[in-house]
Amino acid sequence: MKIIVGNKNYSSWSLRGWLAAKQSGLSFEEIVVPLFGENWEATKQGGEIRPSSGKVPILWDDDVVVWDSLAILEYLSDKVGRDRFWPKDDAARAMARSMVAEMHSSFSALRSECPMNVRKRFEGFEPSEAGKDDILRILGLWAEARSRFGSGGPFLFGTFGAADIFFAPVVSRFISYQIAVPGFAASYMQALWEHEWMQAWISASESEEWAIEQYDTVS
């Protein structure tokens, strides 16, 4: 099995797919493709990223190919058992699935205003009203998950799982853009940031030589 990801400093969807692969417990090869590098248009139409039209992450499991981070997580969940990714309790699992789906499809203002940039810290960033609404919605979801289902550990549903995988890039954004958060959210963010897999991703992102100028500045 192998997963193809983009630059670890910038590619939020790659982080989700990679964390899902780690959470599966299966061994896999990791291939990093620098986004928007030389001959990018030709690169994304060829080789092993062609099935997704150059979008990352993309997972190959022998002859099986899966792209899109949520599809990758669900494929791996089918392969190793859903309890590795999702809460066992029906109500908790329903909320976790809803949160993951909302993260997958929503929060466009936060995404556009705060591109993921793991190694950078932006001073004086002020989100738009739409960005603030996204932030408040995310914090509300985190608060409900932690208060209702988080007693078993420091993560959204106690133990590390699918919801944490999907909100990991948000944690990175909140840190990079120095978004003020309440204490419970700061504790959750610290737990996720210090997770060994996140630390491995962060370390790799800091050693990358690639830079994408448009994501290194804030308008």
Rank of each mutant, 00 (worst) to 15 (best):
M103N: 12
K132G: 01
D134M: 07
L76F: 00
A101R: 08
R84F: 07
L110V: 09
F85M: 05
L110C: 13
D90R: 13
A96R: 02
M103A: 06
D90M: 12
S128R: 03
F85W: 05
F125Q: 05
I135C: 02
A130Q: 14
S128P: 12
A91G: 11
P115T: 03
P87R: 09
G81Q: 14
S106P: 11
A94I: 10
V100N: 03
K132F: 01
H104M: 05
E102N: 13
F107S: 01
E102W: 00
S77P: 14
L110N: 01
S98R: 13
D134R: 02
G81H: 05
E102M: 06
A109Y: 07
D83T: 12
M116V: 11
P87L: 13
M99W: 06
L110H: 00
D133L: 14
F107G: 01
E126K: 12
V118A: 12
F125S: 03
F125N: 03
S108D: 15
R121M: 04
R119N: 15
D83G: 04
R119K: 08
K79L: 13
R97P: 09
K88V: 10
H104L: 03
D89K: 10
P87G: 06
V100Q: 02
V80H: 07
D134H: 04
L110P: 01
N117Y: 05
M99Y: 04
R84G: 04
G81D: 13
P87D: 14
R97M: 13
W86Q: 09
M116K: 02
A92K: 03
R111Y: 06
F107R: 00
R119D: 12
P115V: 03
S77F: 11
A101K: 06
N117C: 10
E102A: 10
E123F: 08
K79D: 14
A101V: 12
K120M: 07
S112K: 10
L110F: 10
D89Y: 11
E126Y: 06
R119V: 10
E113A: 04
A101F: 09
V100R: 01
R84L: 15
R82M: 07
R121I: 11
E129V: 09
K88H: 09
S108V: 15
D134T: 07
A130D: 13
P127R: 02
S112C: 00
R111H: 08
E123C: 07
E113T: 03
L76V: 13
E129R: 12
V80Q: 08
F85R: 04
D89N: 15
A130P: 08
E126C: 13
D133K: 08
W86H: 11
R84N: 15
C114S: 09
P87W: 05
G131Y: 01
E129Q: 11
A96F: 11
F107E: 00
S128F: 01
C114K: 00
C114M: 14
F122K: 05
D134E: 09
H104R: 10
